[in-house]
């Protein structure tokens, strides 16, 4: 099996960051407009405003997105496992999942806000609504993909359902579920941004939109960079956990 060396991975990340910064810097230099400040100015600005004005927004966003992912996993994974393991449950729930999966959940935002208000609940529900389907489906497919032969040793030992779950289903599907989570993360961050532009005065979404309204482009870009970096960190954490638990592959 080909594995990417950890070093190589980091080199790749650095390389892409360098390319992005270079293009950005070139653009800024070509355009010479306040709407595209140079990366140097933006990074200086981050250093300046992070502790004083930005940190609290980072925390709000971080908590919201982590909670969203966690809740989606806590509900989605057991549901997916049940659907994957018991055909009857799958036949009952699959049509429901397939029917709701392609509905553009963002369009439901007004409804969710109407029912749950403008506060944290709505924001969480939106994030969960959007990523939980990917998690349910990937957990289900992972369990369905476990070959019947794998269960035989445990069957001959008279293992209980719980033991099957612990010894086979969880380890066999963990990495697929995490991959799905990692993919869902991108969407989750866009949703987070969107929901934070309403009904809150905290969060990176608010920070970026507020800076934009105040025509403070340096702050706006600082917000975008920090939000992207936050996404990158979450992505990397899930990636690390995933490689930790799939050492055996």
């Amino acid at each position: 099996m080909i594995t990417v060396q950890p070093n190589k991975k980091w080199q790749g990340a650095l390389y892409s960051a360098a390319v992005v910064l270079l293009v950005w810097w070139l653009l800024a230099w070509l355009v010479q407009l306040p709407i595209i400040p140079s990366p140097v100015a933006v990074f200086n600005n981050i250093i300046e405003v992070f502790m004083s004005r930005m940190e609290i927004h980072v925390w709000y966003s971080l908590v919201r997105i982590s909670a969203g992912i966690l809740i989606s996993l806590l509900i989605g994974v057991p549901l997916g496992f049940l659907m994957g393991y018991f055909d009857r449950i799958d036949r009952m729930l699959s049509p429901l999942v397939y029917f709701t999966y392609p509905v553009p959940k963002l369009a439901l935002l007004p409804v969710v806000m109407l029912i749950f208000g403008l506060g944290e609940t709505s924001k969480l529900i939106m994030i969960v609504l959007i990523i939980i389907f990917q998690i349910i489906i990937s957990a289900r497919d992972a369990v369905k993909g476990i070959p019947q032969e794998i269960y035989r040793s445990l069957q001959s030992l008279g293992a209980t359902r719980i033991q099957m779950l612990r010894e086979i289903i969880i380890p066999a599907s963990a990495s697929e579920v995490l991959t799905a989570t990692r993919l869902a993360l991108g969407t989750a961050i866009s949703i987070l941004f969107f929901t934070e532009t309403f009904g809150t005065e905290y969060g990176m979404g608010y920070f970026i939109m507020d800076s934009w309204m105040r025509v403070n482009y340096l702050d706006m870009y600082a917000g975008i960079v920090v939000l992207s970096f936050m996404g990158f960190c979450l992505f990397t954490i899930i990636d690390l956990i995933e490689s930790r638990i799939s050492y055996w592959r």
């Binding site: 794998i150 035989r152 008279g158 380890p171």
Partner: peptide, 21 residues
Amino acid sequence: VDPRTQRIGLILQNYGLLPWK
């Protein structure tokens, strides 16, 4: 036959090892 009450040592033709253990 009840593998829960009996101790059955089964060596499967394809070994039946769990790859994550």
